[in-house]
Nucleic acid binder design. Structure first.
Lengths: 215, 215
DNA sequence: TAGATTGTTAATCGATTAACAATC
DNA sequence: TAGATTGTTAATCGATTAACAATC
């Protein structure tokens, strides 16, 4: 069943979390069964696409019946890796870093935030979500002891490249990158998930302008 | 020149901020001229795509020469609307809201943050980036007086739908939505830019798992 | 002029949608 | 069994890439 997945396209992968979110919501509302057609209407896409997407990973439905919400939810969770426990560290305890640490439910998504680092002496020692901010200089020792798999980068653009190089050497395999720096171009082999908030805001700007042009 | 743009595809639009970012960087480094080929290598895409993309909006290059960085940068800025002044308000002064208000350079992207709102009495009155947090109940009056065009939503999932309905009535045309709620499905006519941080983290989780599977 | 590089058309590739046989 | 809905193949649509004539 799960050996089907080879070369799943990015378009499909990026839809999975959304399916997961909608199914979780249905589950919470006590819906036990759903057809691709009904789910498609709720999500604003085609039933065909949903069936196509899900069948990249296996046949989770029953012909003539549909999908069992609870079962599908858990299957997608497994596909996404929410059942794993991966250690994550966060670099940069500024405004954004603190907000991410406090706000993000890492645990429900398969991650354990085990360390927060910064180089600013004023921030070192502060406790965020029960985790004390450590001096970045201690990264090497911390990583060799605790083996985090993933790093959340909330640092300025300028220091991102160097930090990523350093962390790659320490065994970090995945980056959740909030800096306005295109890591992916320079680290083609690492798993990099960029959150370019600035780009997102500019897209909004474009689309609002477009709206005005139409009027 | 700018009357060319009709039905630009989302794929193109989403690449524009990235071009803008790279060109800004070249500019800062004193590069005056660049060919589509060189830019493509730096950005990790094809020269063909760059030329194709830019020509959706006009012929900004010179045959045999390439593009003048400074000029192209400003053209794309205009396309994105960074030269406009749009009023924005932020709803929800929790962890995330505060971080966005403090961290985001709204000004350089065509937006002026003119108000911050929350319903929590402990937050009301606090000053964030020189802007005092106001009681959400005052939204109606504030909007009829100041006419903001865009709202940044940093509120819980549950209150998002109601708040968007309310803000739409107050003339808000665009939403920068940080809540885990799919506004776009329910407000098909509004301009909505979702930042689903949870989805992004789950995508990272999937891709890290994938990496392990391959080993 | 010769060389370089654009703008643009045509070819290819991939993703989405439609259709339908399989089957619960 | 009849009706419903999946899984899957085929058709369509759109986006990316290649090619090349136009031109600086």
């Amino acid at each position: 069943m799960s050996n089907k997945r080879e070369n799943i396209s990015m378009s499909v992968i990026r839809r999975l979390p959304r399916y997961y979110r909608f199914l979780g919501d249905l589950l919470k509302h006590g819906v036990t069964r759903i057809s691709s057609r009904e789910l498609s209407q709720r999500m604003g896409l085609t039933a065909s696409q949903i069936r196509q997407d899900l069948n990249c990973f296996g046949g989770f439905g029953q012909q003539g019946y549909g999908y069992i919400v609870d079962q599908l939810y858990r299957e997608i969770g497994k596909i996404l890796g929410t059942d794993k426990r991966r250690r994550a560290i966060l670099i940069g305890a500024g405004n954004l870093g603190r907000a991410i640490a406090n706000h993000m439910a890492f645990e429900t998504r398969g991650f354990d935030l085990i360390g927060i680092f910064d180089q600013n002496p004023n921030l070192i020692g502060q406790v965020i979500k029960g985790i004390p901010v450590q001096d970045s200089r201690g990264l090497e020792e911390f990583c060799s002891r605790n083996h985090p798999a993933v790093a959340v980068l909330c640092i300025p653009r300028e220091s991102t490249h160097e930090m990523a190089t350093r962390l790659t050497k320490l065994g970090i395999k995945g980056f959740w990158n909030f800096s306005h720096y295109d890591l992916s171009v320079h680290f083609p082999d690492a798993v990099i998930e960029n959150v370019h908030l600035g780009d997102s805001l500019l897209t909004l700007s474009y689309r609002v302008s477009e709206l005005e042009r139409k009027e």
